[in-house]
Design a protein around this nucleic acid. Sequence first.
DNA 1: AATGTCAATGAATGTCACTTTCATGATGGC
DNA 2: GCCATCATGAAAGTGACATTCATTGACATT
Lengths: 143, 143
Amino acid sequence: MKRAKKKVFADFMSQKGLKSTKQRDIILDCFLSSDRHLSIEELYLKLRSKHPNIGYATVYRTLKLFAEAGIAREMQFGDGQTRYEHVSEGEHHDHLVCTRCGHIEEFENETIEKLQDEVANSRGFLIERHRLEIYGLCANCRK
Amino acid sequence: MKRAKKKVFADFMSQKGLKSTKQRDIILDCFLSSDRHLSIEELYLKLRSKHPNIGYATVYRTLKLFAEAGIAREMQFGDGQTRYEHVSEGEHHDHLVCTRCGHIEEFENETIEKLQDEVANSRGFLIERHRLEIYGLCANCRK
DNA sequence: AATGTCAATGAATGTCACTTTCATGATGGC
DNA sequence: GCCATCATGAAAGTGACATTCATTGACATT
Ligand SMILES: [Mn+2]
Ligand SMILES: [Mn+2]
Ligand SMILES: [Zn+2]
Ligand SMILES: [Zn+2]
């Protein structure tokens, strides 16, 4: 799926008349081969060891591009940093966030999604998106 | 319930050895008689007309005290400002947020809450809190 | 009522995570 | 290869908090 996302991004870029650069290639590769839910700072630091010449602003702008292209999603978990996670076409999930170690787990629940639709319908709301986050202690941190 | 919350706050303050001041009284009164989901800035501006001598920092610190005392809750709706809403003992609700006009509606759904518990249990997570927000167009903005 | 002590206030400043600017460098259509 | 555009990154700007510190105020005590 790494290849598929690279294609999606390449198509988006050419369709927008934007250019392919070494930096963007490196950042995309690093993003796709990293854990999910990375902050700009984290990705920047991860890149820095191998590519000290890539600036923070470029990482920042490139992650925005990923989001625009639909291969990444911006997330806020309340830790003061914007995080980016991988997105696959048509896929959706919500999150369990550990308040002690920061571990993030993903889940899907079709019934919850349906109930949300019902709530929105009953109020005349047209849903664009939603966020459901459960905060607490992960299995490890409970021990 | 305005009186009840004032009592809760007064008890919290005396139990913590903190002092009662004109500013805190005024801010509490203004907060309790305002719409829900106000930002610090909004409350500060609302106060400013009648009480131009109350500083931003005092509003900021006093809202934090309300949250500590359990009569207010900090919320992030992604508009870049922290919002505070009234909290009543034992009460919980989630939100529908209009992305066009900013209107915020509240809802409760016992079934969704139960399903969340199930999800957390199945992963060994111990829930501390959760947030569920549905973003979209409100009935008014759909017209 | 005056005093003493410690918390409260608010103008100013600091912090932090973006966000934008601008001079310089790279890309790619012709 | 030329050159109009786009991209880059160091530096500066922004905005919403968060903290500092000199001064003021609350209130228990005298
Ligand atoms: Mn995720
Ligand atoms: Mn609410
Ligand atoms: Zn954990
Ligand atoms: Zn609306």
